[in-house]
Simulated assay, not measured.
Amino acid sequence: MDIRKLQRAIVDGLEDVKAQDIRVFNTTHLTELFDRVIVASGTSNRQTKALASSVREKVKETGGEIISTEGEDIGEWVLVDCGDAIVHILQPALRQYYNLEEIWGEKPVRVKLSNTRAFAGARATEFDGEDEDEDEANEAAPAAKPARKSAPRKAPAPASKTAARKTPARKASGK
């Protein structure tokens, strides 16, 4: 199966169950075992299991093969081995702790997502040259809006000592 069709099926399966922060990385320069690592987050054990199930179904629908699935019994980190692509579905705390992007993320792959973000993986300037469809390679990435500059805020003036006092001063008794 073509790697672009496989990664599209995987991303579609992840998006069907509302995966968060989907990232696709080209790993051909790191290992001969697989060509892509796809990392996504699920908010609960139930969602990570559903994401893995959705990925398996989409890959099988497109004619791909599922080698194995691991971690579904607990559901905190589910790995789906699709042969040329490995899918890691983690809960956010585990994803942050293990930081798979640091290990596999040297070459992000540009993939169109159906949600409001246009591309996963990285900015267009970090693009490794592979695109999921050649027609889409000619489309420009949406331009990032420049950050707004605001005037520096002034520190509040210190309050006077008498205004800071909450209790009234005691009067001295004249007796």
Rank of each mutant, 00 (worst) to 15 (best):
M1R: 02
I3H: 00
R4M: 09
K5C: 06
R8Y: 00
A9E: 06
A9N: 09
I10H: 00
D12R: 05
G13V: 06
G13Y: 00
E15W: 13
E15R: 08
E15A: 02
D16S: 15
V17S: 05
V17T: 14
K18E: 15
K18W: 13
A19V: 11
A19F: 03
Q20E: 15
D21K: 02
I22Y: 13
I22T: 09
R23G: 06
R23E: 11
R23T: 12
V24I: 13
T27F: 14
T28C: 04
T28S: 10
E32S: 11
F34Y: 06
D35A: 04
V37N: 01
I38N: 06
I38W: 03
V39L: 04
G42A: 05
T43Y: 14
T43L: 15
R46H: 10
R46T: 15
R46N: 09
Q47F: 09
Q47Y: 07
T48G: 10
K49D: 07
L51S: 13
L51C: 08
A52M: 07
V55K: 00
V55Y: 02
R56H: 03
R56P: 01
E61D: 13
E61K: 08
G63T: 12
G63H: 08
G64A: 10
T69Q: 11
E72Y: 03
E72R: 09
D73C: 02
D73V: 10
D73A: 07
I74F: 13
G75N: 09
G75T: 14
G75C: 05
G75K: 03
W77M: 04
V78W: 08
V78M: 13
L79Q: 04
V80Y: 02
V80W: 01
C82N: 08
G83W: 10
I86V: 12
V87K: 00
H88R: 01
I89W: 00
P92G: 02
R95K: 07
R95W: 04
Q96I: 02
Q96F: 04
I103H: 02
W104N: 01
G105R: 03
V111A: 03
L113W: 15
S114P: 04
S114E: 12
N115E: 12
N115W: 14
R117N: 13
F119P: 00
F119T: 04
G121L: 07
A122T: 02
A124F: 12
T125C: 01
E126P: 00
F127H: 12
F127P: 07
D128I: 12
E130Y: 05
E130M: 11
E130P: 09
E130S: 06
E132M: 05
E132N: 07
E132A: 10
D133E: 13
E134V: 01
E134R: 09
D135P: 00
A137C: 03
A137V: 09
A137L: 02
N138E: 14
A140V: 09
P142R: 01
K145R: 05
A147W: 07
A147L: 10
R148Q: 06
R148H: 02
K149R: 15
K149L: 14
R153A: 11
A155E: 10
A157R: 12
P158K: 10
A159C: 05
A159Q: 03
S160N: 10
S160E: 12
A164M: 11
P168Y: 10
A169P: 01
A169E: 15
R170P: 15
K171D: 12
A172S: 13
G174W: 14
G174R: 04
K175E: 05
